[in-house]
Amino acid sequence: MPSHTLLLVDDDAAIADALSELLVDEGYTVVTAANGAEALRYLRANVAPSLILLDLMMPVMDGYAFREVQREDPALSHIPVFILSAGHLGDRVRSLGVAGVFKKPLLLDALLAAIQEHCAPRA
């Protein structure tokens, strides 16, 4: 059984590195992108991942802009998204219509449980 692929979109190299190593240890396949534009390039060229873990404040294309494009694109809009952000989580974040919102620093148990739940149907 192939493992679930998670797309991790974060401009901070250390966070991307640490979180992807940790998720790999948990049995997931992790692909990273440094901003929204890179993430879109990946999504349009590859099989859809099970889940997108999305940072908000990123250069080039931030999480809000990425989400806008993703929701408009019927090929991508079905992929569930978790927001992982160190910023203020206000109304603007709620308006993104995502499957989960997690504050940095991350409560890892909660995040891992939610990821597992979202990937469960195929498992």
Partner: peptide
């Protein structure tokens, strides 16, 4: 304040992830 909180939380997040990852590996015995 918003930039500072973001800037400070970012290295704390990665730091915490490295530590968590070590703890979990330890729990798994790996």
């Amino acid at each position: 304040l918003s930039v500072a909180s973001h800037e400070l939380k970012t290295p704390i997040t990665s730091l915490q992830l490295y530590v968590e990852s070590l703890l979990r590996a330890n729990q798994r015995g790996t």
